[in-house]
Design a protein around this nucleic acid. Structure first.
Lengths: 354, 354
DNA sequence: ATGAAAGCGCTAACAC
DNA sequence: GTGTTAGCGCTTTCAT
């Protein structure tokens, strides 16, 4: 006998709930109770158990617990790459909100060599995560089907889904860009160039350009094609290249301001302007989007539109948890817009009247 | 009977290994085999099982597997805050290397509201993580004792431990700073200011200042106290404040270059210099440390010392895995220095001969 | 307030 | 090549 319940003669003795129980002279159930519902345990029994845990250096197994309860207290986060400045605050919001409710976070990079997005869902499913926060681009029908099959709660962040069946948190990109351009127009700019992201990308690509167009039209300013350059992604280099592309067009268009689809692009554009001998903001104003931390660390400090990444992350885990716990007052599916804000700094100035 | 082995009349049928087994007309063990050691299973049996999995939309439970194998294929990472630019590449290295060997990563922020470092060890222990990568400052004796009690493999990153009992990966900070200062001296600088981190912090604080002093001494240049400002942390604001502090000293010391303990500090210093009407690099050269991505996105581009964060992260997970698997050719404990590199860009220039 | 016992879903000897 | 069975460490009715 002696199924290795304790001091049996073997290798390193594994301290588990049974060991603690027998050491404290109680049943495993009681030990479990002091761990989970201490109020249901008698004072002195509890004390004995606690002492035994301490003495035995006991650490309850989360995986055994998860197997038994069918919950892992873990949320999975699917992102496209972990290096964007972009994601720092989002992760912080997610992590802190998760920590606050005793949840852990498992990150899945959908761009990593061996995987892709669908793989991410499967991987996280295997891990028994309780829910997923998804921010890896537009959520297609295909993904929605996978999610449905898997039966995992999913909340979207910085993006939205094809048929609005999932709850999502993001900024109103069109509106935010409309406001950005209005800010520029209010300062006298009328020839405003834009460096967009890929236009076949619905959320940060197309809609930000749409916002730009809408604002121009609203103020009766013609949208001119020669003032647009489409970046191939959202990085510094793309901004640099795109700006140079505009600068080197046959008939170099006049413009007093540039609006970039994100801060990194704006920084690249500023560099190109600098190399072309143009001063920011004296010769041309530059406006970014995101308000990543570096926006405030460069000279001139970048005027931009702030996305509340931290809050978006935090709200997402709350919403996800509400779904997981089946909280009656959980949010309905659909996009929930989070407030953006134009942050005026140094890279935009008023156009001198001449 | 019918322990809910399958079609029993209940709520949502849970698909587990048994369901798949009976559906395929084999035993659970065989299903387990096609999952783990497919080569030991007959061709057509395997096919039947695979088909059953597909048909039933089966996803093996990682937690049950972990409970059974006593391994979670997860590594924990303890960091002080997740927002430093600093950590982006490190995390990328860790994540990609981990993904490559089928491991997941659980991040624990030691600065998060409810926790501290010791708490982090306990939390991760409960999660049954297989090992820990620690980068939350100097590893004290106290922490080493906790680690020993917990019996978890730990690898250090960007830091070291009190008694060298753990394997660690980092740059040789003293040497790296020596090289940085030598680079400046080779370009004619002799009056070199430094903005250090807190000097009571051994790895990035004290040792980087030591490297600075050593280099000066090596070239017979006196170390002058009025050329040092101690930052209260490693952020932009500290650099800004520290630079202003030097600039506003009673007898403003002469200097042609500033060496910062990290890039963020360097950026703050550049701002202070700019506001003081001093041009970089014409009036004063600035040298950073780290080579975070923004170093290359500002104008003038920052000359700095590159720490190979990505490689450090990747090496750490390899080393940790070797310890976990008890690989015979695993690395010995102690610090393993990773190569640093001076990256010459625009913020440092040669001192004009006068 | 506490105990007994049956699972949670998988793996790993050990048989055949 | 495949099946049997005993756990892995915890939670959770159901008794008492």
């Amino acid at each position: 006998m002696a199924i290795s319940t304790g001091i049996g003669g073997g290798d390193a003795i594994r301290i588990n709930i049974k060991t603690v129980a027998s050491h404290a002279g109680v049943s495993p159930a009681t030990v479990s109770r002091v761990l989970n519902t201490p109020e249901l345990v008698g004072q002195e029994t509890k004390a004995r158990v606690l002492a035994a845990m301490e003495a035995l250096n006991y650490h309850p197994s989360g995986v055994a617990r998860s197997l038994s309860t069918q919950k892992s207290r873990t949320i999975g986060v699917i992102v496209p790459g972990i290096s964007a400045h972009f994601f720092i605050d989002l992760h912080k919001g997610i992590h802190e909100a998760a920590a606050a409710i005793g949840m852990d976070v498992l990150l899945y990079d959908s761009k990593r060599a061996t995987g892709n997005i669908v793989d991410g869902f499967y991987t996280l499913k295997r891990r028994q995560i309780d829910g997923i926060i998804f921010s890896s681009g537009y959520l297609t029908q295909e993904y929605e089907m996978v999610i449905a099959r898997l039966g995992i709660p999913v909340v979207l962040v910085l993006t939205e889904s094809a048929n609005q069946g999932l709850t999502a948190f993001k900024v109103d990109d069109i509106r935010a860009c409309f406001d950005a351009i209005s800010y520029l127009i209010a300062r006298g700019h009328r020839n405003i160039a834009m460096i967009s992201g890929p236009l076949d990308e619905p959320v940060a690509g197309k809609s930000r350009y749409d916002g730009y167009c809408l604002a121009l039209q609203h103020y009766d300013i013609p949208v001119r094609e020669e003032l647009l350059a489409v970046g191939s992604d959202y990085h510094y280099e793309s901004g640099y290249k795109a700006m140079n592309e505009i600068l080197s067009r046959d008939s170099r268009p006049e413009f007093t301001a540039v609006f970039a689809a994100c801060d990194d692009i704006a920084l690249g554009a500023m560099r190109a302007l600098y190399e072309a001998g143009l001063k920011v903001p004296d010769d041309v104003s530059v406006m970014g989007f995101d308000d990543v931390s570096v926006a405030n660390m460069v000279t001139p400090k970048l005027t931009t539109v702030k996305q509340p990444f931290y809050q978006i992350g935090a709200r997402a885990v709350q919403a996800l948890n509400d779904i997981i716990e089946d909280n009656p007052n959980r949010l309905p599916p659909g996009v929930h817009y989070m407030p953006h804000q134009v942050i005026g700094r140094e890279s935009v100035t008023t156009v001198p009247i001449r």
